[in-house]
Amino acid sequence: MSPQEVKQQNLVAIYQALLQLMTQKPMAAISVTELCQAAKVSRSYFYRHYTTFDQIILAYQEQNMLHYLRQLPNQSQVSLADLMTHYFELTQTEVATTRLLIKNGKLDVLVQTFQTVFKLLIKQNRVSNPRGMHIFEEPYYYEFFSGAVVNVAVNWVQRDMPEPPKYLGQQIDHLAKYH
C-alpha cells in the first residue's frame, strides 16, 4: 500500500471511530487515547497529523465533498444551481452524520468545509457566474455565502428534508442573484 493510501485509510478509520464515539457521548468527553484505540491508530499518528478533533472532521468532510463533486459533469463550468443541488444531494446522503455533527455543535466545521471547497471550485473556475467573477473578490463574500448555504442545509435537515435537493439548489441560485 502506498503512503497516500495508508494516510487515506487512517483518516477514514479515525473519522469513523470519532463518529461512532460521538453517538455514545459528547465529543468533549472523548479522549485522544480512546479515539486512537477505537480507530486502531497510534497516538503519535494523531499528534503528527491533528491537534483537534475538528481537524479530523474537516479533513474527511473536505475530501468527501471533493470526491463527490468530481462526479459533476465533466464540463469546464457548472451552474450554481447544479453545484448547490449536488451539495444538497450529498447532505441528504450524509444526513445521519450531518445530524450528529449538528448535535455536537460542529456547525462551524460544516461552514468551514463548504467554504474551503467552494473557494477551490472558484479558484479552478468551475462555477459559472453570469454576473462575473468580481463578486468573489468582495470582502466577506465567502463567509456570507458559506454560512447562508450551510444554514439552509441545517434547517432543511432539521425539518427532515421536505423539499428535494434540486429545489434547494434552485433557491440558492435564485437568492444569490440578489447579492
Rank of each mutant, 00 (worst) to 15 (best):
T113V: 08
V6Q: 12
S2M: 06
N104F: 08
M133W: 00
I172G: 04
Q75P: 01
A148E: 01
R43Y: 04
Y141L: 09
R70H: 14
V6E: 11
R131H: 07
Q171E: 12
Y15I: 01
Q24K: 15
P162S: 06
A28I: 08
A153Y: 07
H179C: 00
Y50E: 03
A59L: 01
F118I: 10
Q75N: 11
V154F: 01
N125R: 15
A153P: 04
V109Q: 08
N125P: 00
Y178V: 06
R43W: 05
Y45G: 00
A96Q: 14
Q24C: 11
L101R: 04
Q77L: 10
K25V: 04
Q9N: 10
K7L: 14
A17S: 15
Y167I: 15
K166T: 13
T98L: 15
Q112D: 14
Y140N: 10
Q37C: 00
E163S: 09
L175I: 11
L107S: 04
Q115T: 14
Q8F: 03
L80W: 10
D54H: 05
Y87S: 09
E34Q: 13
G169Y: 10
Y50Q: 05
V12N: 04
L35A: 02
F114T: 06
S42Q: 07
P73S: 12
Y60R: 11
Q16N: 15
V111H: 03
S42V: 03
L175Q: 06
A29E: 14
H49V: 04
D160R: 13
N104P: 07
V150M: 09
P130M: 08
Q77Y: 10
T23Q: 14
Q4R: 13
A17K: 11
T93I: 13
Q9K: 14
R43I: 10
T33N: 10
L101M: 12
H86T: 08
I56A: 04
N64V: 01
T85D: 12
G132A: 06
T52N: 05
L58E: 15
Q92C: 12
L175K: 01
A17G: 15
V111S: 04
V12C: 01
L175A: 08
K40G: 00
L168H: 10
H86F: 11
R99D: 07
G147C: 00
M133N: 12
P165I: 13
Y45N: 02
Y60G: 03
T116R: 05
T33P: 00
A59W: 00
W156S: 08
S42H: 07
I172C: 05
R126L: 13
A96H: 09
A39W: 01
Y142S: 03
L35T: 04
M161A: 10
M84S: 12
E94I: 02
W156G: 07
R43D: 01
Q8S: 13
M65P: 00
I122S: 07
D160P: 03
R99A: 04
R99F: 07
D108M: 10
E94F: 05
S42F: 10
E62I: 14
E34N: 05
Q63Y: 02
V12E: 12
Q20W: 02
N74P: 13
Q124R: 15
T23E: 15
V127A: 06
Q4E: 14
L110Y: 03
I135T: 09
L35R: 06
P162D: 07
L19H: 06
F144W: 07
L110A: 09
F136T: 08
V95F: 07
L18N: 06
D82I: 12
Q124W: 05
H67S: 13
L110I: 06
L107Y: 02
T116N: 12
G132D: 09
A17D: 08
